[in-house]
Nucleic acid binder design. Structure first.
Lengths: 342, 342
DNA sequence: CTGAAAGCGCTTACAG
DNA sequence: CTGAAAGCGCTTACAG
């Protein structure tokens, strides 16, 4: 039985006042009922009256009015430099899962790899978000943020001083990878880095280089290049560098992301470089396609969904006004060996 | 010269009243200046006074207060059933590009392939969005939406009656694909569909089946299966179906998305099925990885970024109160042939 | 050109 | 347990 009048297409906005009138109570009571704050404040009788009126009229608390009165909205802003990464889609899924229907996820996207600046941040804050999630930030951005309100950083190694964080132990996987290559007999490797000045990429590179060195794998400075996170760009850069690398005895290439690695694989096929016989290739992220490529891509697996889930969970805690028991969490990474490294 | 006092971490909210006082004008004037509505309404003198005060105090118009007064927010909601698809990341990038900094993009995500229902929609509308973008909807969802305000549909073939739309001519690519397979000598094919009841998948399948039939390729009912848009799920389903298909003489598999096709490629490698000698494989979307896989995946290319761009552009028109010159736009698709089909 | 005032829809002390 | 009232920060007729 639909009792809503909808004469000509657009339904009129139903307000708390309309509900109040129908239920024969004040708007204050409507607000209490609609927000479930009735405990010891509203009579059973009025509760059911209001509930009935609410469902009859199809009333929904107006987000804007509510936000203004409360001083905060139900929006959670997720700032991220690269949503084109499939890895990131899983992080979002994880966030959504723990945030549930109480909060709306607003995605702040800029151009690939770029972070918003002071003015953009102010505009975002003008939405009075309930909380902020920042993925793979750099220190400069966090300085500008001058953190107002609940804030959780994702994948922000070394930036623990700024806010609560959920990190990935990429260094562990990077070391495993170096060990794996050393065990396979490699003694000279190259590294394809990401150009974005994001902390996680520094950690990946440094951990790999350090462990490689310790294991007798040399990575000369001219064997380290960087490109944007793009298959084509990586392919091009590799094409340019390979002749040189080959001459200097490079037998393995490690890439900052699987996306870079796909570019290397692609170009290697074009150039007739045998993978893994002539060249071993590995990446970070373990994107879904890495299991599918031919050969499969050896990669450092990062738990994307758990990352999003945990970050959402921590943020919920902060938004509820809690003191986090464990403000800094680190999730494991581990190497997945596939055909691209023999 | 930073004149903002920030005694202990959290900056106090700067309001229009504070700016007004500093500039020696009323809040009405501040509002006019902040919104650029000064033409013939504010003296040059006051304009510069207010501008100065604004920048001195770092004032930003509060989104919530503004939205409440205006009756509409600056939020554009993008509803989509599957953001884990890299295709979708590009659509978002296109939308962002045309929407610019004036609007905030709110991503409404549900579980993969699911659409929000009545209640969720109401909650979204409670944010008073300036506009709505709905990707790959089904009719049921649009019925529930009872469209209030500017709305543009993306990739919603056959749903033109509901709202302005930007569509992809997937049928054209699908027919090209059927022709290509027929030309390659295939006479029996299988189809791996998506389980989501999304119109575009129906169009893809139907256009392919029709053209295949016309070209002498038979696709028996038991050679049509469907799975979620997931590499693993597709691989599993293919593993189960392949022995049967092989016996019945299937030499080509067309997949509703490249993601499905990756699953088929993966399982084929495991099962030792030679691609393309024993089995030709093709998909839709032309994801970045399709150029990289080995063999490369033949796929119907869909212009993701232009799709997002055009949709954003149309929505801007509607939000500006314009009548769209061309409310229904269709973008081209075309087949990209790679190694997976020989 | 300018400002006082009403109003957007809600929430929350407050007084009863 | 209940409601009148103030207030959140802004925008927009309105009167001047």
């Amino acid at each position: 039985m639909d009792t809503i009048d909808r004469p000509s297409g657009r339904a009129p906005r139903v307000t708390a006042a309309m509900v109040a009138q129908r239920a024969g109570v004040s708007t204050a009571t409507v607000s209490l009922v609609a927000n479930g704050k009735t405990r010891g404040r509203v009579s059973e009788d009025n509760i059911s009256r209001v509930r009935e009126a609410i469902s009859e009229l199809g009333y929904v608390v107006d987000g804007i009015g509510s936000s203004l009165a409360k001083g905060v909205s139900s929006i959670v802003i997720l700032v991220a430099p690269d949503i084109s990464n499939p890895f990131f889609a899983k992080v979002i899924a994880g966030v959504r899962e723990t945030l549930g229907a109480d909060y709306q996820l607003l995605l702040s996207v800029t151009d690939a790899g770029e972070f918003p600046h002071a003015e953009d941040v102010r505009k975002l804050m003008a939405l009075r978000p309930a909380g902020l999630l920042v993925d793979a930030p750099n220190a400069g951005f966090l300085e500008e943020l001058s953190a107002a309100g609940p804030l959780v950083l994702l994948d922000a190694p070394g930036l623990e001083a700024y806010a609560a964080s959920v990190n990935l132990d990429v260094a562990h996987g990077a070391r495993e990878l170096a060990a794996h290559l050393a065990d396979s007999g490699h003694t000279r490797a190259a590294y394809v880095d990401s150009v974005t000045g994001t902390a996680t990429f520094d950690v990946r590179r440094n951990a790999f280089l350090e462990e490689a060195k310790a294991r007798g794998i040399s990575v000369p400075p001219d064997c380290i290049i960087s490109t944007t996170i793009d298959v084509g760009a990586a392919a091009e850069a590799f094409a340019l560098a390979w002749p040189q690398w080959q001459r200097s005895g490079v037998t393995a290439v490690v890439c900052g992301t699987d996306t870079h690695a796909y570019g290397v694989l692609q170009e290697a096929r074009v150039a007739g470089v045998l993978i893994p016989q002539e060249l071993a290739v590995a990446g970070f992220d373990d994107l879904p396609y890495s299991a599918t490529s031919n050969p499969g891509l050896t990669s450092v697996h990062l738990p994307a969904m758990p990352l999003g889930r945990k970050a959402g969970q921590q943020l919920r805690g902060l938004m509820a006004g809690l003191e986090l028991e464990e403000p800094h969490v680190t999730l494991d990474s581990s190497l997945v060996v596939r055909g691209s490294t023999g």
